[in-house]
Design a protein around this nucleic acid. Structure first.
Lengths: 355, 355
DNA sequence: TTTAGCACTCTCCGTTCCCGAGTGCCAACG
DNA sequence: CGTTGGCACTCGGGAACGGAGAGTGCTAAA
């Protein structure tokens, strides 16, 4: 059954008022908020109807109305006014995106913090690469006992490790190893690195000291962990909300969030720019059943994509949050797509004169 | 005034009982806990005395006793029995320290998590290097538009950055730059990198394209941020404690902790192996006035040192926490002092067969 | 000096009670 | 017939109250 214009107006007023106040909304309040010309009595009739239809709920007989998940869903799909970001907000986001950091994962983490600050809800970031491989190897000789492994991965992340060994080797050995690894270890995934491959590499390099294993171990470790990562920030913001006045409830949700494995199971596939909203029971995880999650995807180029999102109570300012996340994800995609122009290039950063 | 043997026994019983129960301790309970032969009435007299002397406090006239900061202090200094770690605990710590990670900062972060798990209190880590300098430069040529900067810093951390440029350069140029930077930028602190130095380096390298600035910027950025870092984990554990049943209180403390700048002001100088305990009002920061902090220092070699600690209510199992932190810090020092033996060397890690 | 006894104090918790917000329904109205 | 004012009703929440229990301080006796 289709809702009348007036019913929609009323539903919107209830949702928005409840988002602001966190308290059941009465008929009088709706009248004021929606600037309706009819009387509270009329509104009561409509409220009763909306309640019958499952858009609203009553905590108890003589209380005001509270939106149900169904109510929020309708609100998000149809009633919500697209919220434009203020110049201030876009300016803040742009500025923060501009002074980004050397490492990709730190950058994403920072963006997460930014989302927390802007929405004052906990933010989560998830990044995943379809298949990470090594694009290039380098071994830097330091002295006869130590060298640095430098790996350039797809997605243009660089990983490295300093290795000290209890025996000595020559610069030549390293060069040979470097060549062999570049030949046989590039472009392959973690699963392709078998004991046989390592064996044959060892023979090809004429390595008698086990250097090959050391390097191979690092490659495996790197590929295994470089694939993605999840990060949560600003969990403490939940504690400000009235729905988490019970520390236990907050604790359960925070615990759930801090286990990165849980986040991986969030549904990912949204189009870039699009924002996905999961309201209360629409979440698969039990711990999120009375919270909402707003997600936006970003594109990091080179088969890498990621999600940035926030978690909050079902009573959440969906339009503001969605607008902000969408803008952030868009900005991040743009930033990463451009092949990562050199930071600091052109403007020399001397400490102190930067900001 | 010196406390009698019996008074000390009683004080200890009160502190330990309160640590366990979080509730004011009565005379009968003390009698049982301390296994005293005298009657509750006698103990009441002693409790009254201890209260007069400021070691204990009474929430209200007819309640049991609660230790004051002064009481905890005496307990920590004199009364506390050294807690030996169980084999299980040392085993856990050793195992976790063993499978450490490639990057130093990740390692420290992991150790923080470990401290949280073992003590079930929020853990903090702070690391600081007296003066970070670059020990060695390398520039890896990728193609005519891109290269990787690799910096080996004191403390044997390696930092890197991938640089794409909108114009092309030759492998030769990079080699020349590399040599020049190795000559003039190594061994100097961030503050020594002046515009003049960059200018003269640029001239020495015959660099006409501004590559020098790009690299210098990265060096400055790296030195500025590599100096140290703070990290907090497990804040949510506070929510389990009865003293934080007020979400606001928890929120304030967590907020304080999550601002890394605050942590830097914690007093640092402890001898390695020694553990520093700050009880309630002994803390300088207002936000910590009714919490306690236990800190242990570790030595990361090469002028690097750090602190690992936990934060909890004044009612904290000091002896267990101190023993654990001390052991962790000791293990970490040993691990880092040995010049970081190669991870994975000798035991090849193939995913899946590791644990 | 220790102990038993006792009166006293204070918190905690359950009960009761009232207030007010808000509802549903009904009858009247344009 | 939709809308409106009126009214009785419901229910949660906070204040007020009271008893139970835990623990104390004091006193007097051992």
């Amino acid at each position: 059954m289709e809702l009348s214009q007036r019913q929609k107006k009323i539903l919107r007023a209830v949702v928005e008022e409840y988002i602001d106040s966190a308290e059941p909304v009465g008929s009088r309040t709706v009248q004021q908020r929606a600037a309706l010309t009819c009387s509270p009595a009329t509104i009561r009739n409509e409220l009763a109807e909306l309640t019958r239809e499952g858009y609203l709920d009553q905590p108890h007989t003589s209380a005001g109305r509270v939106p149900t998940a169904k109510g929020y869903r309708l609100y998000v799909n149809e009633l919500m006014r697209e919220r434009e970001l203020t110049d201030d907000e876009t300016e803040t986001i742009n500025r923060k995106l501009r002074d980004r950091v050397a490492q990709l994962d730190k950058l994403i983490e920072n963006v997460g913090h930014m989302a927390t600050e802007l929405t004052s809800y906990p933010a989560l970031t998830i990044s995943a690469a379809a298949a990470v491989t090594v694009k290039r190897f380098d071994l830097i000789y330091l002295d006869q006992n130590s060298f640095i492994i430098v790996l350039l991965l797809t997605g243009d992340t660089v990983k490295n490790k300093l290795v000290h060994l209890p025996f000595s080797f020559s610069q030549n050995t390293l060069q040979r190893l470097s060549a062999v690894f570049n030949a046989s270890f590039t472009g392959i995934g973690e699963e392709a690195i078998t004991a046989e491959l390592i064996d044959s590499t060892e023979r090809a390099a004429g390595d008698t000291m086990g250097l090959t294993s050391v390097i191979a171990s690092f490659v495996i470790e790197t590929l295994a962990t470089a694939g993605g990562g999840a990060n949560v920030s600003g969990e403490a913001n939940l504690l400000k909300l009235p729905e988490f006045k019970d520390p236990d409830k907050a604790h359960r949700l925070i615990n759930y969030l801090s286990d990165a494995a849980n986040l991986a199971s969030l549904p990912g596939g949204t189009d870039f720019g699009d924002v996905k909203v999961l309201i209360g029971p629409e979440n698969a995880a039990l711990e999120l059943k009375d919270s909402s999650v707003v997600l936006a995807s970003y594109n990091a180029g080179d088969n890498m994509r990621g999600i940035i999102g926030v978690v909050g109570p079902t009573r959440m300012d969906y339009s503001a949050v969605a607008a902000k996340l969408s803008y952030i994800a868009g900005g991040l995609s743009k930033l990463l797509a451009g092949g990562a122009p050199p930071s600091g290039y052109g403007k020399l950063m001397i400490k102190g004169d930067d900001k």
